Computed example of a mutant assay.
Amino acid sequence: MPLLSTSQNTARQPRLTGADWVEAALHVLIGNGIEAVQITALARQLDVTRGSFYWHFESRENLLDALLEEWRARNTGVMLEAIRETSCLEDGIFSLFSVWVDHTRFDPKLDQAIRDWARHSDKLREILKIEDNARVSAIAGFYERHGFPEAEAFIRARVIYFTQISFYALKVEDDEDFQERLGYLNEYFKCFTGRDMDPALGAAHTAKFLKGISDE
Rank of each mutant, 00 (worst) to 15 (best):
L4Y: 13
S5E: 09
A11T: 03
Q13W: 02
Q13I: 00
T17D: 08
E23K: 11
A24G: 11
L26P: 00
I30C: 11
I30H: 01
G31A: 13
G33N: 10
I34F: 15
I34G: 10
V37Q: 07
I39E: 14
T40R: 15
L42I: 13
L42F: 05
A43Q: 01
R44P: 00
D47Y: 05
V48I: 05
R50S: 11
G51I: 06
S52M: 00
F57R: 02
F57L: 03
S59Q: 10
R60H: 15
N62V: 01
A66H: 08
A66W: 13
A66K: 14
L67S: 01
E69Y: 06
R74K: 12
T76N: 07
G77S: 10
V78H: 14
M79C: 09
E81R: 15
E81N: 12
A82N: 02
A82G: 02
T86L: 05
T86F: 02
S87I: 04
G92S: 08
F94N: 06
S95M: 05
F97A: 12
W100R: 11
R105D: 10
D107F: 09
K109H: 10
K109A: 15
Q112V: 02
R115V: 00
W117Q: 06
A118V: 02
S121Q: 06
K123L: 07
K123M: 06
L124E: 14
E131Q: 14
N133I: 00
V136H: 13
F142I: 03
Y143P: 01
E144H: 08
E152P: 00
I155T: 13
A157R: 04
A157C: 04
V159D: 06
Q164F: 02
Q164W: 09
F167Y: 12
F167I: 05
A169H: 13
L170W: 13
V172H: 11
E173S: 08
D174A: 11
D175E: 14
D175R: 14
F178N: 01
E180K: 12
N186H: 15
Y188D: 02
F189K: 02
F192S: 03
F192C: 03
F192I: 03
R195F: 12
D196M: 14
A200Y: 09
L201G: 09
A203L: 10
F209D: 01
F209R: 02
E216S: 03
